[in-house]
Design a protein around this nucleic acid. Structure first.
Lengths: 119, 119
DNA sequence: CGTATCTATGTCCGTAGAGGACATATCCGC
DNA sequence: GCGGATATGTCCTCTACGGACATAGATACG
């Protein structure tokens, strides 16, 4: 049974690194899979890389869980590519991302308090 | 072959939630397994709970990976309990925890920049 | 125009960790 | 001595991660 967005966003935490990175990318704008891969790698300075199996596997699960959905629109029709499949973050996906952001923010605070952040 | 502490702390990131929480507890002081469970639950306000299988499984892997080690000392000999097995964070474990703390701190900054932290 | 490389999506499969269920034994209060 | 709390541990299943591999359309270039 596919999970519905009925349950609280907090119940989905913590997110895995791939899922969080994908949500961060899609929170800014609709993107296709390959573009997400490139964006995540560039944004993280190469520290986070998504293999294609991780990327497309995660996207499928995220659609199943209603975190993202397929977008019919073609952003940038000027230089398009028929093969591309665009994804959009859902309202629920954004709520989950925000819940995770809050959790991480609190965690960062705690780690600072305990002198584990050394910079 | 068990992983040695030869490789860079960053190569072990990201840490799973259980492993990070255990390291946070042990960074403050030596503790036995059951005390770690209680501390994590209390510190997180019940949001993070470690089942015994998760806890002891994680501790075994963390020893294999030289993040923690068994401690022979008995802190609090006044009210001791023979069954307790105390664990201590290693220098390498602390380095890994600090690397993770830095990563999380940067992540929190990014999430704030992108207006995903709403509080 | 052929062909090599980049772009783009996807599956298959092995491995490892999370966690529920269960097992066992000791400690302590009453 | 009996029950609940303390304490450690295994077994088993499920799921996700990610390397290897497959396929094909787009683009550049001689």
């Amino acid at each position: 049974m596919p999970r519905s967005q009925m349950d609280a966003p907090e119940s989905r935490l913590p997110l895995s690194e791939p899922v969080l990175q994908i949500l961060i990318s899609l929170a800014a704008r609709d993107l296709h899979g390959y573009a997400i891969m490139r964006e995540v790698e560039e944004r993280s300075g190469g520290r986070v890389t998504l293999s294609t199996s991780t990327l497309y596997g995660a996207l499928q699960r995220m659609m199943r869980d209603s975190l993202v959905e397929r977008s019919a629109e073609r952003p940038d029709p000027a230089s398009d590519d028929q093969r591309r499949r665009y994804y959009r973050i859902t309202d629920f996906g954004r709520a989950v991302a925000e819940a995770e952001a809050g959790r991480i923010s609190e965690l960062a605070h705690l780690l600072r308090e305990r002198d584990l952040v050394t910079r």
